[in-house]
């Protein structure tokens, strides 16, 4: 029984040793060695290109992030309306050089107010300080 098993094992081994023998014999060792060396020689260049290739990839990611952030900012502005308009006490472009320190503090405080109120009651806060022109401008902007 054991002898029989051994014979079978040996036969199996012999057949296994023949597997791939033809392909191995056909192999041109010198050509293979030169081909491998040539590819290895090219590898540093490939690595350099790979690193260079990272640049555009990161640029693409950065560009995508900028677009997403920009779109988010635009959407937020559109959704909330032009918030700064609601709190404008000193119209943009007005010469501030004639204002005193306390007047400037008041102006800055007024500019801060809409930001503080964003989480609160919304655009109706501070409308009482707007003149008819400002209100018309605000309505036009809300109408799009």
């Amino acid at each position: 029984m054991n002898d029989d098993a051994t014979v079978h094992d040996r036969e199996l081994q012999e057949v296994a040793q023949r597997l791939g023998a033809r392909a191995a014999e056909r192999l041109d060792l010198e050509r293979m060695a030169q081909a491998v060396v040539a590819r290895l020689r090219a590898e540093p260049r490939r690595r350099a290109w790979a690193w260079a290739g990272l640049g555009p990839t990161w640029l693409r990611i950065a560009a995508a992030l900028v677009i997403v952030a920009g779109a988010g900012a635009i959407a937020r502005t559109w959704w909330h309306g032009p918030a700064p308009v609601a709190g404008v006490v000193v119209p943009l472009g007005e010469d501030l050089s004639g204002l005193t320190a306390s007047e400037l503090r008041d102006a800055i405080g007024a500019l801060d107010r809409p930001l503080e109120d964003e989480t609160g009651s919304g655009v109706d806060v501070g409308l009482e300080g707007l003149g008819p022109d400002d209100l018309r401008a605000l309505l036009r902007s809300l109408e799009g």
């Binding site: 296994a16 597997l19 191995a24 192999l27």
Partner: peptide, 11 residues
């Protein structure tokens, strides 16, 4: 080692 490797791969 290429021939031995080729035999293994053939197997």
């Amino acid at each position: 080692h290429a021939r031995a490797l080729a035999r293994f791969l053939g197997g």
